[in-house]
């Protein structure tokens, strides 16, 4: 049952990504990308990662889509009567080569959900799960790590967002707002 659900969702995600790749109209591609992000968010829920799923749905499917829409409002939306783009064979061969090489490595990865996988048995995972609540009083371990143990990392993330915001203003010549 679980496997069937994964099968349906992952097929949807991969086909949405293919739609992005081959739809000629940019607006259609952006809408396909929003659906793709939403499908991935549901896969994260199946993987018991609710925080990542919420962020992906809000930021990946929401904010990113709005940014793309703003960008095509400011630029052009190339027309044309064809629905799909032509296949660019050179890049297609290179991408297929990459997929082929990476697929040969899949067999050496641990099975999905394996309780003895290196990540699940890692000392760090065990430490956080055992100590996050006693040390920080936060039940959600992801929040505890994000805001307490890796607080400086999150501060750096905030710095990145600030730098990106300033860069956008400078690039668009809106220094007057800085």
């Amino acid at each position: 049952m679980q496997l069937l659900l994964y099968g349906v969702l992952l097929t949807f995600v991969v086909f949405a990504a293919l739609a992005v790749a081959f739809l000629r109209d940019i607006l259609s591609a952006i809408i396909a990308f929003a659906g793709f992000s939403f499908g991935v968010a549901i896969v994260y829920i199946l993987l018991r990662a609710p925080d990542v799923a919420l962020t992906e749905a809000a930021v990946g499917a929401g904010v990113t889509t709005v940014l793309f829409l703003l960008a095509i409002v400011r630029t052009v939306r190339p027309g044309g009567d064809r629905l799909f783009e032509r296949v660019a064979w050179g890049p297609a061969i290179i991408a297929t080569g990459l997929v082929g090489v990476l697929l040969t490595t899949v067999r050496s990865l641990p099975t999905i959900g394996d309780p003895n996988s290196p990540v699940a048995t890692s000392e760090i995972t065990r430490y956080y799960l055992e100590n996050a609540y006693p040390q920080t009083d936060v039940e959600n371990v992801v929040t505890a790590i994000l805001a307490a143990y890796r607080g400086f990392d999150t501060l750096g993330e905030a710095a990145v967002v600030l730098a990106a915001g300033l860069a956008v203003l400078v690039v668009l010549r809106k220094e007057v707002y800085v």
């Binding site: 995600v13 991969v14 990504a17 790749a21 660019a88 050179g90 890049p91 297609a92 997929v99």
Partner: peptide
């Protein structure tokens, strides 16, 4: 891995 391939294809193609 399929998403890597599709992403790379879109960036290049």
């Amino acid at each position: 891995i399929l998403l890597f391939g599709i992403g790379l294809y879109v960036v290049m193609g």
